[in-house]
Design a protein around this nucleic acid. Structure first.
Lengths: 167, 167
DNA sequence: CCGCTATCGTACGGACCCGAACGAATCCGC
DNA sequence: GCGGATTCGTTCGGGTCCGTACGATAGCGG
């Protein structure tokens, strides 16, 4: 158990504390579950698949993206991974230092920098990604297929809503 | 758009790259959506509700927990929030420095430290939490009630599975 | 051409985050 | 009682993570 209190106890204590307020409880429970699930999944995948290769979660996301798309501008990578450009600079430096990623200054627009995998980076992903996906499958094994599809759809709607709210 | 590529393009590119491997795609898509949604929600809630009060996401989670439960041992707080004890030490120090949280050394077991909100911390939560919950409601507004319930159930199953896998 | 503006990636400071190691306190087998 | 094992919170080092500020580059109106 991640908590010394059961789910029921927590909800009762919450009700005792804030029950007099007009709150949206389904939203609160959904987002609480969302954050806990994402945190648990990230921690488990990191321990199971990434740590043996001495990779961080974010570093892996960058490698995966470059594996799928061959080369990308840094601003696109940051946007896709969901981190700031400033953070990506540091993450990229780490991956470059380990010989997995290469920086390619753009010739057309000299402000831009593109990223690509080195051969070593590609070899790593060929071995690593099937292991990673196996761990992913383990995590969702208890969720029936239909519920998983519903969940995926709802999560994407939340992403869309969040993006719309940023304007 | 968080990505210069549409979802369909990404899935096609993925298929081109790893289509010859025996992978669990529903699991991969579900966890990708899970991580993106959690990231987007966290970023939006931080900007909307937390930043005006100069609070961090993790700091807010700690405050919320102490608000609901009055006082807790640090090890329980770390477990509930999903961070390591080492991280909690730093987060707690920040909150103590801002006068929102107090450390209470346990008299029964002198290895333990309990945390509790100061009056200022309680006053902050009374104002802040309704704002936070309002932003939460905005995020899930596009998801039908039934789908939201299904999503919450599935997310909790993933949390349970992840915990079981840690043994 | 030539300022004005926008956008790029990066440097910096501060906060979070973890694993490992540590001193202090407690527990437990004998 | 008491010595070894366990558990506690903290410290430390290294790696994200962000907002801000910056120098460099590009686009654009006049």
């Amino acid at each position: 158990m991640p908590d010394q209190h059961t789910l029921e106890e927590t909800e009762r204590a919450t009700s005792d504390r804030v029950g007099h307020l007009a709150l949206n409880y389904p939203a609160a429970h959904a987002l609480s579950s969302l954050y806990r699930a994402a945190n648990a999944a990230r921690a488990h995948l990191t321990r199971t698949a990434l740590r043996p290769h001495d990779l961080t979660w974010t570093g892996f996301l960058v490698l995966w993206l470059l594996w799928i798309w061959d080369r990308m501008e840094t601003r696109r990578v940051a946007e896709s991974v969901g981190i700031s450009k400033a953070t990506l600079t540091g993450v990229t430096s780490t991956l470059v230092r380990r010989g997995l990623v290469e920086r390619l200054p753009s010739l057309q627009d000299r402000r831009l920098v593109e990223l690509t995998l080195t051969p070593a980076g590609r070899e790593l992903m060929v071995v690593l990604y099937p292991q990673f996906n196996g761990a992913e499958a383990q995590l969702v094994a208890a969720v029936p297929g239909e519920a998983l599809a519903t969940m995926t759809t709802s999560l994407r709607q939340i992403v869309t809503t969040a993006e719309a709210l940023e304007d």
